[in-house]
Amino acid sequence: MTIHLLYTPQEVEQARQQAAPYDSIWANTAQPEKPASALEQVMLAQDKIYVVLAVVLIIWLGLMVFLFRTDRKIDALERTVEACIPEERDEL
């Protein structure tokens, strides 16, 4: 398998120049004074993929909570049905 370089240094410089007009709003504002907190240092690394991971995990865990709660409702419903439907049904 050949592994290609994603971007050449020229391409990086070109991208930076193309982005410059969009950065102008921020160029005039004061840069944040505070050094990056430990949390920021982690979350902003690796092209900020950790932020995506955090979002996906929140969604996934939210769906799992939903699944578990639905199961508890089914459990309760099954108990109710068992209690309400008389046993003589078994003789049918």
Binding site: L6, I49, V52, L53, W60
Partner: peptide, 23 residues
């Protein structure tokens, strides 16, 4: 269900964090 919930959570974390070949 409980095994699947934990298994897929670990798998999602690994899917984002493990290095892959960059093409």
């Amino acid at each position: 269900r409980n095994v699947v919930a934990v298994w897929l959570t670990v798998m999602i974390v690994a899917a984002f964090l493990r290095d892959i070949p960059r093409l």
